[in-house]
Each structure stands twice: as C-alpha cells, then as structure tokens.
Design a protein around this nucleic acid. Structure first.
Length: 868
RNA sequence: GCCGGGAUGGCGGAAUCGGUAGACGCAGCGGAUUCAAAAUCCGCCGCUGGUAACAGUGUGGGGGUUCGAGUCCCCCUCCCGGCACCA
C-alpha cells in the first residue's frame, strides 16, 4: 500500500475501472428493486459551477448508498440545451448557438466524469437534438388536436429599437438591456397549454406527495391560488356609451364583468377600475386625448408581475359610468395601471374601505370611501389603513341594507343569490394560475410544429413529417428571430391542401423540454415513439434533487406534463417525483462595474481580490463594486469554478467539502476556507488505514470479551453506523453523517494496543468507516477498502445491537431549570430510583437547604429537574 | 408589493420529539517534532468577572406559554429565493 494519499492517481484509476466495467449502467432487466435517482439536468453554460457540484454530489451519495443497499439504481444525466444564453453568446462571439452548445456539453461532460459520479452515461440526452424534440413536437400536435393547446393574444416586452421581444431578465429598469430603449408592452398571438384545466388536480395532488418539502407544496398551492368568489356584472347604461363612427366591441347592452373574492363588500363599491387595454378604456379614449395619453403611458414598462406590483398605482377617470347591480347606483369607471387585461376579466370592482390597494388609490384621487364592514370595538377612520378593515373572520356587514349584520360567508351567499336572481352574477371558483404561454420569438428552441395556411389556418405538422428540424448554422444578431429570414425554413407546403404556406417560426419555452426529460431517460434510444414500456418500469422518480429556485415553475410544469402524458396513455402514474430534495442555493459574492449608460459588467470572484476592504480586479488593479452575496448564476458571473479545486485536491475533497459545509436544504455561502480541512481529513483517514494495514491482515472483530477502551470504541462505532444510515436515508443530512465519522476516527486514533483483539476492533472500525464514507468519497473509499479487505465486495455495515448496551448512564441534574451537576445511575434504574439518587446528591442538598422539593421532573435517559 | 424560507462563537455549522447550547470542521493561541520551515501530532478556545474553584450572561430584537424555549405562540427588523420570457 502507498504510504502517501495521491488523489489524482487513485481517482483516474477508479474512473477508468468504472468506465471499463460499465459499473453504473442501470439494468432494464434486473429483479432487484429499482431506485431512480435524478438530479435536475444542467443548462450547458460552459463549465460546471459549485451549484452543479453540490446538486450532483447529493444525488450521487444517495445513488451510491442505495446501490450498496442492494437497489438497481438508475442515475442518468443530460443537457437542458436550448435557451437564451446560447443566443447571447452567439451575439457576443459570432458563433452559432448550436456549435457553442455542443462544445460546452463536451467540456462539462468531461468535468462531470472527473467528479466520479455514478452516472449511466448510455442514457445521456440533449434537448436540442432532433431525436429528442421530435417527440415534444409530436405531443404538441396531439394536444393541439385535443384542444389542450390553443392560441390567443398575450402581452410581451417589446424593444422598439432592437425590434425584438425581450425576456423579463433583459428588461432593466424599464429599458432594453442592449438598446437602452424604453420597453413597451405589445400584444402578439401565442400558443397556450391549458394548465388551468388541471389546476384542481395539480392542487389536490399535493396531498399525495408526503416526500415533498412542505414549503414547496405551500408555494405551489399558493401559486395555483384556488379561490371561491363571485363573478358579477355592472350594467353599462345607454347614456354611458356614445355612438362612435367606427365599430367598437361595446354596446349599451354589454355588461362589465368583474371577479371578486369579497362579494360581501359589494355595497361598498365606489368605483370600478379597468385595464388600459379594456374595450371600455379604448372607447373612452377615442374622444379624450388626455386619457389616450395615459393609456399609452400604461403600455410602457415591463410585463413582469414584480414590476406591476411595486410600481406607483396610477389611474384616470374615463368619464363613463356603470350601474351597480344591486343598488342601481351610478359608479365611475377608471383606468388603472395596476389592472391586467390578461388577468380574469381585465376589470376589478374597487372597495376602498376594505382593500388596502383601493384605499390608497381612493385617497390619492379623492374618490369616496364607504365603510360596509364593521368590527365591534374598532373605529373606522378615513385617515389611515387598519389591518382589520380587510379581516374576513371578524367583520360583519354595516351600511349594507339587508346584508347588515351578516358575517363573511353569509353575506357572500346572500349577495350571490340576489345577483343570480337578476342574472347578473354567480359564484365561481377561480384560480390565480394562468394558462401556460409557450411561444417564444427566439431561434434557439424547439420549433413549434405548426404550418400557417391561408386556406386551412393553423395546421399541425403530421407525425410522418416530424421532426421540424431547427437549422443549426444560424447566428442570431439580436434583432428578432433569425428564422424569419430563413426562406428554406419558413416556406413549406400546407400538409392539408398542399398549397404554399408559412411555417411557424416561434419556438417553445425551454420549460417544455425540461418537463418530460425525466421520462425519456427510461428509453432514450426508442425511435418508435415518445416513450415505451420502460417508462412505467422506472417511473416515478424515487428521488429528485434540484435547486429550491425551481420550487414553482419547473416542478409545476413537470407535474402538469406528467398528467398530460398519462392522459395520452404514455405513463400510468399520476405524479413524476415521489421524493423531492430541494437543495439550497450556492451563493457567492458579486462584483461589477457600471458604465456611463448604466450597463453593468460582472466579474468573477476568482478574478477579484480584496485588500484592506477594497475589492479590485486582479487584471488591472482598479476597484470594482461589491454587489452583495447572491446565488451563483451566469447573469452575475459569480460562479466559482470547481476545476481548480479538483486539480489541486482531487474530486473526493471537492465532494467531501461540499457535503460537509452545510446541510443540503440550506443555502451554502462559498468560501475557499475549509477545503483544506476536508483534504486533511482524507489524508488522516489514509494514514490510519496505512498504519493499520502495515501491521498485517487481521479479520474484523467477531465477538468475545474486550477491554473497556475497545468496548467503548465499538459502542461508538455502532452508534455511528446507526446515525450515518439515518442521516443519509431519512434525514438527507450529510454534514452530520461526516462529522460522526470524523469523531469516530478521532476516537480510533486514540485507541492504543497492538494485540490481535485490539487490531481486530481497529479492522472492524476502519472497514465500516470506509464503507460509510464511500458514497461521499467513492475513489478513496474503493482504494482503502481494497487494501483493508482485498477482493471483497464493499458492503454497508450493519448495527450490532449488543455493542450498544450500556450499564450505567449519566443524567443532567437541573435545579429550577438550570444545569447544576450530573449524576450516574444504572441504565435500568426506575423513575423512583433516579429521583431518589438526584435528591440524595450533594448538589440537590445544597439548593434544597433541608426543605422538601416543590416538584421533581424526570426525563428518562436525559435529566432530572428539581424545582425548589 | 405578494408568496415561501432564513438569522446560533471570529467563520461554516450541530443540537433529529420542548430537556447538557456551540458536536464536527475552519481560523486563532500554546506546546511537541525539525538545523529551520512546511507537513504532522498534542492541548486550549462563546462573552464578562475571577489565579482558580466558580458565578453571571448568551441562539437577530421585543413580549408570552412552560418545571424547562435555539426549538412552541404573538409582534418587529434584516437577509435570501420565486413572481409566469434566466434556467
């Protein structure tokens, strides 16, 4: 055995062995129970970052642990290969996104292999390959024919200078990131998945996911946002709408519909607010230039909800009046910049007395505020908003005529019934969740398989003509979708009538690819359809691991897609992921410089050094701005490159440190400190094994009498085996598992003696410790086990219950809840005996001063608390 | 703004069901080894007072429940994630 721990040598040897013997190939024909362990696939951004290392090490630990426990493990890997960064790179470097992406994949695959993950590389897939997206297009056409996919107008960010649609991320302070132009909202036609049709099932299905973190289920439930409310109408009187020369969708017979969850406050409505795009607003603006200007202003800015919610609430009176459905009152109609046309009805009723946003709006514009809910003992004031104004639980009706005195539910029921009788409203269940718009006006994505024919309309591409292949020799220039300029792509024949037609040039949201890749891993080579029978053999995924930032969108879309595939007969399960582990962010400092036009250039932490509290770029020594600690991301260029770590210390050290630095679910602030400590531990482990092996072979302890020190060490060993198994399997907390083995190694180093019995205990401890660490540090684990026990198959150690037995235990002694001492009692001592021993102790005597105790609390195995 | 989460020594973190706060590691300090250094090994290490024994104090801030609270309840502050076109 080598005396020195040489990570590079043993890691290369181990990886070569695994590749040669296809060690991690998942068998489709095994009779062992399956364990499908899946980590979220990476976007091929160029190089791995620490977030990837963390994510895939967690998955690898679980995969290897289960393999040791006898499961037929599948751990696949692939590439979420379509997306915006490839187009940005293309613009910056004049490289086709395809070439850039494939080069990145090659590099990152090499990096993943160097980390020694137990991945079945035979199942690798890339979503930008036609043999993958072909089936996505096929499913699209099926769903289009079923009506699950439909077309409607939707609002996007429009850059008027670059003549292109912008992602929310590309809108910075209301301006285009490249052009700096003020961004406008523009309505364009898009294809939508009818996810709202599955809203109820997506919500109730959360109850069948005990293996998911509560916080993720809560976030999804809130996102779906099921609420029972009332859809009701205000009448538009004849006098309210003037005749106009050109046709308008509005007539005096029309009704202005709104949805509200607070129908109990209907008697307090003092105005109605409509979106800038609402027909009523459009009509009013025809004869009101000031209003037209305001509407134009509303159409500026980004479409992101965070922007909509934080911007200043503005409005303007349209001059129109509508009629209150119950009171017949005349209610003014305002345009509000915070009302979204694509949300519900594009109009809201405003009750300033009981809605905080309406309250602020009414105060700003001097609109009336009418209290219609009261809480006993509270006084209503127009000056300041009080929490209780919106309290459903405590309030009941006031100033509401026949509805006075009714609580929330009774009032809603009564009002809904009266509206129904007038044919002006009904109870309705509504979801916050909106249908999923998947059209992207971008090149580097999966083409939407639709042909636009002047005669036949939107025609889905027939299965036999799929895939619609994306040309890979394109270099986008940042102004619109280059596919529009590719005649060879655009021009085609209508599949139905054969006449010349135009191919759709929009591509799909990349969330579509990531919504079903987990299923394709079961049968990546199947060319006869989307999935074959192996999908049901492997699905659902037993353990899914990924970043908490995907808690809502990706995980909701994947759940939705699974149900779509189920309803197509492709899979039989209802949910794709049984257990979910949401790893925390890997965060790191950010550094940037801002140019005169407000554009920020971000610098990698590796290129920045801090001296005397001032951060400066190593390259030019000039200062950079410290931008705070944020999740490692391409956009902020604060990813830490793990390659340097691997080169210097080896993959096992990188893996060990990542697992040791923080528990998986917490965010992990990256710092170079501590890596050294992890490496030191591996060297120490190697040395302990080396020194033991030098003494010659010995079988692990198999029974018999032991001296106290060895007996205590054995007890600690078996306590550790119990803890490590529990930490990995149930708690999924690896830092404490590693700490427990470190403690065990510290204790082993202190065990003295070279007799056969002592050495047999040492052998037992080392075998078990190496096996327990092997899922985390597999290369050194395999190397050491081969030295300790040549030619043996590494097995997960089992707990020897007999080794855990203790005759005497120590209990903490508290007086009035404060720790004052300890007592030793027999492990089997009764409660009475423990109490007596406690009271007899010197400490108790001191505090009791001869008086009897008020109370004695005995917590078995833990402590005694004497109250005096 | 809305939804979800977090805050514990100089630092990363532990305390799993309300029962010894600070395991394990990093940094630091002291010692051994060495011609010397690195590496390695041993010891100390929340804060305040004390030579010490020990006492007081301490888990973001304020209040509460309990024999006992880092853990449960109420209020507040700050930080992080998501907000539908970053992935």
């Amino acid at each position: 055995m080598q005396e020195k721990y040489l990570p590079t040598e043993i890691e290369h040897a181990a990886q070569a062995r695994w590749t040669a013997s296809q060690t991690y190939r998942a068998r489709d024909d095994s009779d062992r129970p399956k364990y499908y362990c899946l980590s979220m696939f990476p976007y091929p951004s160029g190089r791995l970052h620490m977030g990837h290392v963390r994510n895939y090490t967690i998955g690898d630990v679980l995969a290897r642990y289960h393999a040791m426990r006898g499961f037929n493990v599948m751990q696949p890997m692939g590439w979420d290969a379509f997306g915006l960064p490839a187009e940005n790179a293309a613009i910056a470097n004049n490289v086709p996104p395809a070439a850039w992406t494939y080069a990145n994949i090659d590099h990152m695959r090499t990096q993943l292999k160097a980390l020694g993950f137990a991945i079945d590389w035979s199942r690798e897939l890339a979503t930008c390959k036609p043999d993958y997206y072909r089936w996505e297009q096929w499913l699209f056409t099926r769903l289009f024919e079923k009506g699950v996919i439909y077309k409607k107008m939707a609002t996007v960010n429009w850059d008027p200078v670059d003549q292109t649609v912008l992602a929310n991320e590309q809108v910075i302070d209301g301006r285009g990131w490249r052009s700096g132009a003020l961004v406008e909202k523009r309505d364009i036609p898009m294809y939508f998945f009818r996810i709202t049709q599955y809203a109820d099932e997506l919500l109730s299905g959360l109850d069948n996911l005990p293996g998911w973190p509560e916080r993720v289920k809560t976030m999804q439930a809130n996102w779906i946002g099921k609420s029972v409310g009332v859809r009701l109408a205000f009448k538009i009187p004849a006098a309210g709408v003037k005749a106009t020369p050109h046709p308008s969708p509005l007539t005096p017979d029309d009704l202005l519909w709104v949805f509200t969850t607070r129908a109990d406050t209907l008697m307090g409505v003092t105005f109605v607010a409509v979106a800038a795009e609402h027909p009523l607003a459009t009509r009013a603006a025809e004869s009101n230039p000031e209003l037209a200007a305001f509407i134009a202003e509303c159409k500026q800015g980004s479409v992101a909800e965070a922007d909509m919610a934080t911007m200043e609430k503005k409005g303007m009176d349209t001059g129109f009046k509508v009629t209150h459905p119950l009171t017949g009152e005349s209610i003014p109609v305002w345009v509000g910049n915070y009302v979204l046309m694509s949300y519900g009805e594009g109009a809201v009723m405003a009750v300033p007395a009981h809605d905080e946003r309406d309250f602020g709006f009414a105060q700003k514009y001097g609109l009336p505020i009418k209290q219609v809910i009261g809480v006993e003992g509270e006084t209503f004031s127009l000056d300041a908003w009080q929490e209780w104004y919106a309290d459903k639980a405590r309030g009941c009706g006031v100033n509401s005529g026949k509805y006075d005195g009714l609580g929330y539910e009774a009032a809603v029921d009564a009002i809904a019934a009266d509206l129904a009788a007038l044919n002006l409203g009904e109870k309705k269940t509504q979801f916050r969740l909106r249908d999923w718009g998947i059209s992207r006006q971008r090149y580097w994505g999966c083409p939407i398989p639709i042909v636009h024919c002047e005669v036949c309309g939107d025609v889905p591409v027939p299965a036999g003509q799929l895939p619609v292949v994306l040309p890979e020799d394109v270099v986008p220039d940042g102004s619109g979708n280059p596919l529009n300029k590719r005649a060879d792509f655009v021009n085609c024949a209508c599949p139905t009538c054969g006449k010349p037609a135009r191919r759709e040039t929009d591509t799909m949201d990349t969330f579509v690819e990531s919504s079903w890749y987990y299923a394709r891993y079961a049968c990546p080579d199947f060319d006869g359809g989307m999935l074959d029978a192996r999908a049901d053999q492997w699905l659902p995924v037993d353990q899914y691991i990924g970043g908490i930032e995907h808690a809502i969108l990706h995980l909701l879309y994947a759940r939705f897609f699974h149900k779509l595939m189920r309803d197509e007969g492709l899979v039989s399960s209802d949910e794709p992921f049984v257990n979910l582990l949401t790893q925390g962010m890997v965060i790191a400092d950010t550094y940037y410089r801002e140019s005169a036009d407000g554009k920020k250039t971000w610098f990698n932490p590796a290129d920045v050094e801090t001296r005397d509290g001032v951060a400066a770029l190593k390259a030019d020594g000039q200062p950079v701005v410290v931008g705070g600690t944020e999740k490692m991301a391409k956009s902020k260029n604060n990813g830490v490159d793990p390659q340097a770590l691997i080169d210097q210390y080896g993959a096992d050290t990188a893996r060990l440190f990542t697992m040791f630095a923080a528990p998986p679910e917490q965010s992990l602030e990256w710092s170079d400190a501590g890596v050294e400590g992890a490496h030191r531990f591996l060297k120490r482990l190697w040395k302990l094994a080396f020194e033991h092996v030098q003494g010659g072979t010995v079988a692990a302890f198999a029974g018999g009498e032991l001296p106290d020190a060895a007996k205590t060490l054995r007890r600690q060993l078996h306590q550790t085996i119990h803890k490590v198994g529990d930490d990995i399997e149930r708690r999924k907390q690896f830092n404490t598992a590693i700490a427990a083995v470190m403690e065990l190694m510290n204790a082993l180093a202190k065990l003295e003696g070279d007799d056969v019995t002592t050495r047999s205990v040492r052998q037992e401890v080392l075998e078990a410790a190496v096996a327990m660490l092997a899922p985390i540090v597999p290369h050194i684990g395999e190397a050491l086990y081969a030295e300790l026990k040549p030619d043996a198959v590494m097995a997960w150690p089992t707990v020897d219950e007999a080794a855990l037995v203790q005759e005497e235990i120590e209990l903490m002694l508290q007086v009035n809840g404060k720790l004052r001492g300890q007592i030793r009692v027999a492990a089997a001592a009764t409660r009475e005996a423990v109490e007596a021993a406690a009271l007899a102790s010197e400490v108790a005597q001191k505090y009791l001063e001869g008086k009897p105790p008020k109370k004695v609390v005995v917590v078995p195995g833990r402590l005694v608390n004497i109250v005096v």
